[in-house]
Design a protein around this nucleic acid. Structure first.
Lengths: 336, 336
DNA sequence: ATAATCTACGTTAGCGCTAACTTATTATGC
DNA sequence: GCATAATAAGTTAGCGCTAACGTAGATTAT
C-alpha cells in the first residue's frame, strides 16, 4: 500500500492551489472548464480520492448514517437494512451497522460509538432503551428515525415509523372469528418488546369486538424465533384440544408453532389455524404455506432514509409519525 | 441538539491542557490518578465524547472496517455480517455495510466509498470484480479479507477465507451414490458465481469418482433463490422420471426445487432426493426437513475479523488462506 | 474613462484531535 | 547535597480538507 495521495499532491502536480483542486473535486463553480478538466485528469492519474475523514472534520458532515438493530440475521431487520442502504447508496451515504442483540448495555454502547463516529443521523430499530434514556441520546444526534417505537414528545429532528401492530392483530382476530374460532392463543414474543405490547393490546381489543372472552392463559411470551414458538406452542397445546387458532409474534414463531402442532399430531389448519407476522420470504415456501400479516420491511428502512434526506434538505413538511398498515395474507395455515 | 463539546471545552472546564484530557480519555500514562479522575468526571458531566473523525485524521486510524456483500437480505451473508460485527464490536470497531446487488459497477463504487471513508480494512464477500481490478483495489486498502474468493498472488495484507465447495459437492455425490442414485442433477446458481464454479468442478469430479456418467443436461444455472430453484427444477423435471437426486446451489434453491417437485407430484425423498447448501436456520424447519451441506457462516465473518485483528496487532503467523469444510447434514429430503 | 461587477483563481485559518517534543516538579542514587 | 532520573504535566505542529475572505485581471455599465 503506497502512501495515499492528498489534495496537496494533486495541487502540486497540477500547478494550482488546494482550493482549485477542492473545487474541482466537489464540482463547485469558480473554475474554468479547462482547469477543472486538467485537475480531474491529474487526480485520476494519481488515484486521488478525497479523504472523507478530513472532509468530515472540515465540513462537520460525515455522509454517514448509523443503523442500529437487534440482529441483522433476523430477516425482518435485514430487509430494513437493505431498504435503508439502498437509498443511502443513492444519496452517497454510507451506513454503519450495529447489532445490539437485544441487550440494553450494548445498545447504549452502540449509540455512543455512533455518536463518536459523528454520523449525520441514526436509524434505531426497536430500541429497548427506557424512554428517558432514549430521549437523551436522541438529543445528541442531528437526526433520528425510530423504527418500531413511538416518541411521546414530538421533535423536528425525529421521525417515528411504525407498523400498525394493533391493526394487524385485529385483522387476524377478525379472520379467526369469521372462521368460527373461539379459543385463540397468542404467542407474543419477548416480554420487553414494544411490538408485543401493541399487538397484545390489539389482540385483547379485537377479542372484545368479536365478543370472544379473553383468557390470559392463552397468551404466552416466547423468544422471537422458531425455538420460542415451538416451546410455547408445545406448552400451550399439550393435553388439550380446545385451542383452534394461534396468532404468532412473527413468522419464525409461527413456524415453530406449526412444528409443535405437527409433533402433537394436530392438523393444520383443520385442528389448529396459525397466522404469523411479517411475511418473510420463506412464509410462502413453507408447508403448509403460512398465512401471515405482511409488513413492508424494505419500506420501513426506505422511509427512514427518505425522512433523513428530507430533513437534511431542509424540507418543511416532514411527516413525523408514519405508520405502515399490515395486510393479511391468507395461505394454507388457516381455514377458508 | 446543543453544540457538541470538544476536547478544549473539557480542558478549560478542568483547568488542564488539551493533552491531559487526551491522555485521560485514551487511558494513557502521564497523569496522576487524581487529575485523571477529575478530567473524566468533568468530561462525563459535559457529555463529552471524543470526535472519531478528528481522531482518525490525527492518528490515521479510523477504527472502522468496510463490509461489502451482494445482499444482507440473504441469510448466508447476514450471518457473515453478524459474525464480523460481533468481533468488531468487541474490538471497538464499527462496520460500514455496503450492498452491491451483484452489480459490478456498484461494487466498484462501494470500494471507492470505503476507501474515501478511510476504513482500516475491508471484508469483501463474493466479489464479482475481475481479478486484475480486484487486485488493484486491494492494494489501496491496508488490509483485505476475501470471503468466497481466491487470490493467486499471496499478499501479507490479504487473507482469503473460503468454503471448500468442491468437497461439499463431493460429500453430496458420495451420499447420493451410496443411496444408488445414478441420475443426479445440479442446480448451480448464477453463472458468474465463484462458488458455482468450484462446486461444479467438485460435482463433475465426484461423479467420476463414483463412476457416474456426467450429463451436462442435468446441470442448470439459476438465480440463487427459491424462485430460481423452482423454475430450474420445473424445467428439469417436467415430463421425465429418471432424475432421482438434486444437488442445489443453496438452501433457498433447494426449497424452490422441493416446491417444484411438489407441484409435479414427485415425492421427496422417494422419487427425488434433494440436498441443499448452507444450512440456513429454516432448513431444519421446512417440511421435509432439508438435508444440506452446512457451512459455518458466522465463522466466516468471525475469521475475517480475527485475521484483521491479528494483522493490526502485527502478529506474524497469520494464515493467509483459510478453508472451512462443509459437513453433510442428513434430514428428511434424502433417503437413508 | 472610471467605477462597478464578475471571473478565476489564491491565501489563511481552523475543524478536533494526537505525536512528539519541551518544561517544571518531585523522587532517587551515591 | 547535588546530579540524575522519573513523573506530570504543557506546547507546538500538523493530519487533509473546506469556508471565508482576498485579489488580480477582464468585462460591463454609465
Amino acid at each position: 500500500m503506497n502512501k495515499r495521495p492528498t489534495i496537496s499532491d494533486v495541487a502540486q502536480a497540477a500547478g494550482v492551489s488546494l482550493m482549485s483542486v477542492s473545487r474541482a473535486m466537489n464540482n463547485r463553480p469558480g473554475l474554468s472548464e479547462e482547469t477543472r478538466k486538467k485537475i480531474l485528469s491529474i487526480a485520476d492519474q494519481l488515484g486521488y480520492r478525497p479523504s472523507g475523514v478530513a472532509r468530515a472534520l472540515a465540513t462537520k458532515r460525515s455522509s454517514t448514517v448509523g443503523l442500529m438493530m437487534p440482529d441483522v440475521t433476523n430477516p425482518f431487520f435485514s430487509q430494513i437494512a437493505k431498504g435503508a442502504e439502498d437509498l443511502a447508496y443513492a444519496m452517497g451515504y454510507n451506513i454503519f451497522l450495529v447489532n445490539t442483540d437485544e441487550d440494553i448495555k450494548r445498545e447504549i454502547k452502540a449509540l455512543h460509538s455512533l455518536f463518536e463516529k459523528q454520523v449525520d443521523g441514526v436509524i434505531l430499530c426497536s430500541p429497548r432503551l427506557p424512554f428517558d434514556q432514549l430521549k437523551k441520546h436522541i438529543e445528541h444526534f442531528q437526526f433520528t428515525a425510530l423504527i418500531n417505537r413511538e416518541l411521546n414528545s414530538p421533535r423536528s429532528d425525529c421521525v417515528t415509523i411504525n407498523i400498525n401492530d394493533a391493526y394487524g392483530s385485529a385483522l387476524a382476530i377478525k379472520h379467526f372469528s369469521n372462521q368460527g374460532h373461539k379459543k385463540i392463543a397468542f404467542l407474543t414474543g419477548p416480554e420487553e418488546s414494544i411490538s408485543r405490547e401493541r399487538r397484545l393490546k390489539g389482540f385483547i381489543q379485537a377479542l372484545e369486538t368479536h365478543s370472544i372472552p379473553y383468557d390470559e392463559n392463552l397468551v404466552l411470551p416466547c423468544s422471537p424465533d422458531t425455538t420460542g414458538g415451538y416451546h410455547a406452542a408445545t406448552a400451550l397445546l399439550s393435553g388439550r384440544d380446545d385451542i383452534t387458532a394461534i396468532l404468532s409474534f412473527n413468522d419464525l414463531v409461527a413456524f415453530g408453532a406449526i412444528q409443535a402442532c405437527d409433533e402433537l399430531g394436530k392438523d393444520i389448519p383443520n385442528q389448529v389455524a396459525v397466522i404469523g407476522f411479517d411475511d418473510i420470504p420463506l412464509a410462502s415456501i413453507m408447508k403448509p404455506k403460512l398465512s401471515t400479516l405482511r409488513t413492508n420491511k424494505r419500506e420501513l428502512g426506505h422511509r427512514a432514509m427518505q425522512a433523513f434526506r428530507a430533513y437534511t434538505n431542509g424540507e418543511e413538511n416532514i411527516i413525523r409519525q408514519q405508520t405502515l398498515e399490515p395486510t393479511l395474507i391468507l395461505r394454507e395455515s388457516t381455514l377458508g
